[in-house]
């Protein structure tokens, strides 16, 4: 369970450019929830993910995971329980290393990075089995540099890598935004499958309202640092894309764009 309690975050505090992103923002994500988060640019969706992961500091408030306050915990320590996929496909993989090396390094998460051999030949077949269902042909490219793969292929690999080891939470930051529609579809199906199989508590930020409606069991809409819509369970199932679109347009008009 992730609890954000009374989070306040200001950019450039004390200057003329002071910008209040969150003022006493609270949100609770329960175990097993797959939350789709939508909202306009600047509504604080990505900042919220960064705050959970410790990538940006907060001014006040508490971040509580499974009852433990992690507000002051370093980012890399938090990531031991979190799998994370970014919008930019290059952030989840190492371009100068090949697929086998990338998967090996991800597979070693949580274990010591010592002087043992970086890759294990015996595991190649297992990694290929993981790649095969993607239907991207990656299983035949184990020794190909990840930097030479397409964005979609890298993102699929990033998603696999982020969930290879046992993690509790999956944080998806517009992870299909940089992909073409067909590849985005493949990645979303893979996401749904992984979340279901591994029973991950997931927060997915997306600009694709259809994905937000189709996937997940809770839907949150954010606007100017607050939650303006929060539907879960049967309410969420009843939500239609058009309905969200209407609310979305309304807040956008209010903002003057």
């Amino acid at each position: 369970m992730i609890e954000l309690k009374n989070i306040s975050k200001y950019y450039n505090p004390g200057s003329v450019n002071e910008l209040c992103l969150f003022d006493k923002f609270s949100l609770t994500v329960n175990d097993g929830e797959f939350v789709s988060v939508v909202g306009s640019n600047g509504s604080g969706k990505t900042s919220m993910l960064n705050i959970i992961c410790g990538s940006i500091p907060i001014d006040s408030g508490n971040i509580i995971v499974n009852g433990t306050d992690i507000t002051l915990k370093k980012d890399y320590l938090r990531h031991r329980r979190i799998g994370r996929v970014f919008q930019d496909p290059s952030k989840g993989t190492c371009p100068s290393m090949n697929i086998l090396e990338n998967m090996s390094i991800a597979d070693n998460k949580g274990k010591p990075f010592d002087l043992g051999r970086g890759t294990n030949k015996a595991k190649v077949a297992y990694y290929q089995e993981l790649l095969r269902p993607l239907n991207l042909g990656l299983e035949d490219k184990m020794y190909t540099q990840v930097g030479s793969l397409s964005g979609g292929q890298r993102q699929a690999l990033s998603l696999l890598m982020s969930t290879m080891t046992p993690v509790e939470f999956l944080i998806l930051d517009e992870h299909t935004a940089a992909l073409d529609p067909k590849t985005a579809e493949i990645i979303m199906q893979l996401t749904g499958k992984i979340v279901k199989e591994k029973k991950l508590t997931t927060i997915m930020v997306t600009h694709n309202l259809r994905y937000a409606v189709e996937y997940g069991n809770r839907l949150v809409m954010m606007h100017e640092g607050t939650v303006i819509m929060d539907k879960s369970g049967s309410d969420k199932k009843a939500v239609e894309t058009e309905e969200i679109m209407a609310i979305f347009n309304k807040i956008s008009v209010e903002c003057g764009n």
Binding site: Y76, L77, S90, T93, C94, I105, K109, F113
Partner: peptide, 12 residues
């Protein structure tokens, strides 16, 4: 190459 990945792996 990509220090974000190292953080994601739970390493300093």
């Amino acid at each position: 190459d990509n220090d974000t990945l190292v953080t994601s792996l739970g390493v300093d």
